[in-house]
Write a protein that binds this DNA or RNA. Sequence first.
DNA 1: TTGTAGGCGTTATCAG
DNA 2: CTGATAACGCCTACAA
Lengths: 331, 331
Amino acid sequence: MSNQLTIEDVAAALGVSKTTVSRAISGKGRIGEATRNRVLEYIQKNNYKPNAVAKGFSQRKTFNIGVVWPGDYSLVDLPFFQRCLVGMSEVSSGYGYDIVISLVTGDEISNLKRIIENHKVDGVILTRTLIDDKPCEYLKTSGIPFIAIGTSLDEDVLSVDNDHFDACRELTSILIAKGHHRLALIGGSLNHMITRTRYQGFVEAFKAANKKIDESLIFLNQGNEQKLTEILKQLVARKVDGVICMDDQLAGYVMSICRAQHIRIPEDLRLASFYNSNILENAIVPVTSLNFDDRNLGAVATRMLLAVIDGEHVEKQKLQNYEVVMKESTK
Amino acid sequence: MSNQLTIEDVAAALGVSKTTVSRAISGKGRIGEATRNRVLEYIQKNNYKPNAVAKGFSQRKTFNIGVVWPGDYSLVDLPFFQRCLVGMSEVSSGYGYDIVISLVTGDEISNLKRIIENHKVDGVILTRTLIDDKPCEYLKTSGIPFIAIGTSLDEDVLSVDNDHFDACRELTSILIAKGHHRLALIGGSLNHMITRTRYQGFVEAFKAANKKIDESLIFLNQGNEQKLTEILKQLVARKVDGVICMDDQLAGYVMSICRAQHIRIPEDLRLASFYNSNILENAIVPVTSLNFDDRNLGAVATRMLLAVIDGEHVEKQKLQNYEVVMKESTK
DNA sequence: TTGTAGGCGTTATCAG
DNA sequence: CTGATAACGCCTACAA
């Protein structure tokens, strides 16, 4: 452990100064070709590894980025966060950065405050945006660089997101074009920005088609299976053309309810989902849905953050990489 | 950012030395009651936060623990890791430690090597154990403290796990006692230690009941739904009493296959799972399964690791906190 | 092209 | 009980 080679050991062994070794490693500053190679060779052979903490300390950096991970347990969200994380890790490790996880549950942001106040990270990525977003507010006042994945109402907040608006609009438009005008919409918490964005896409599609939305077919803040069963019975009785669920978990609920109630998809009811993950993989009827590249989303967010940390100017982004996948459920 | 108060600022403002301030904060070393209070009050009022990096640097510590997170994407595993993570975070934050995530996919352990070689963490938690475990081997040679969650064949490796053996044995025994002797077993990768442990529990139950296992009813290394469909048809034709799946995803597969094939549970076939998570939550038939406290598992692993880091002696552990939950699927 | 010296914020050692 | 001072490993003016 403590027998780790330091820059000083290398310098002594080679009869040069610490500065020279440092320069050979960092590539900064003038240094003779021969000297550099001698140093590089030596550290290679003797397996010298720079102490990242010491390095960071001297530059007032940590080479860590914080990632705010939702502690409130929700199975649906998990695949999304995991996929983002993979992208983040790929990018950050390429730049010599590591990822510090900060579990935030509801408004309990003490874990986030800790890593900021203790100077454990150089920047932070928020993995979702809320309407009344405590983590986001805190980060703003802290002055630390951060990127929000999702849409933010706040113009000052640097954010990046998949283009849920366009994607939802397009999927809805396609269904309308197929003659399914009486569409119900089932969505989750209105406290999540994404719920509102998806709703807006849905609305826009109707507007573009010059159709009026039947407000009594819109069910937001859902998530409870009992209530959904009632809603579905009602919808079938009212002979709607189809149901759009805002995410794959809701779509999964709907499918199992339909099965139990002997409602056939797509014969009796069309079904589509505004988000896809392998939760729907086992579905007996393949479900029309939207695919996003979440891994790339995480990668882009990380690149943006690293740029901000390096003092570069960075703009908000909206990624144009969704896919509308038409399946049997809306035949 | 850089206008952060340092210990020196505090000392200057109060007309004492840095040492005194440090002592007031850490509680180490003798210091006058009055002086201490004066310092404490000042840092409180002026919102002084110690620089954890500097502190760590001077003690050759990072106050970070690394958590090896599987990068190979698998939905089943996610709830388990997430629940562990919550427990880890609760404990580590209580001790002023943060969590650095290291994504490891297969044998590609460069992310793990980086955090070790760069001295980014004081110890590591492995969140699962494999038969031929590269991360584990690497950690052993690195000499850094680490804890493996799961069973390890290696006696030198400090590990902690739920008592899958006893749990699986007990659930199997109960089914046997109910008269279900012809039991099929479906499990995942044999490269995972847990698959073997579960199998051993299953075997032990039969041994204890003096029944012979029909080897042709054991299907390991499964995960593919196509193949499972064939297997299930076969099992029903052979009139087995029931099927035990090693995890909730497999159980989910089996349920949806049964539904499609019009195999009724529990009338035509009994079903049980050796692991439960909210993946089974939406199941139409409640499934007999095993509950574990994964959050606690993560918490215990973290406590063990922190103890090892502090140079304390620590023993392997097996947690005795499983619950056998009998449901309708094995009526 | 290379070397010297000082600093990053904290703790630890050793005097007073 | 308190205070200088050195160390931790690396980087970066500045000097040679």
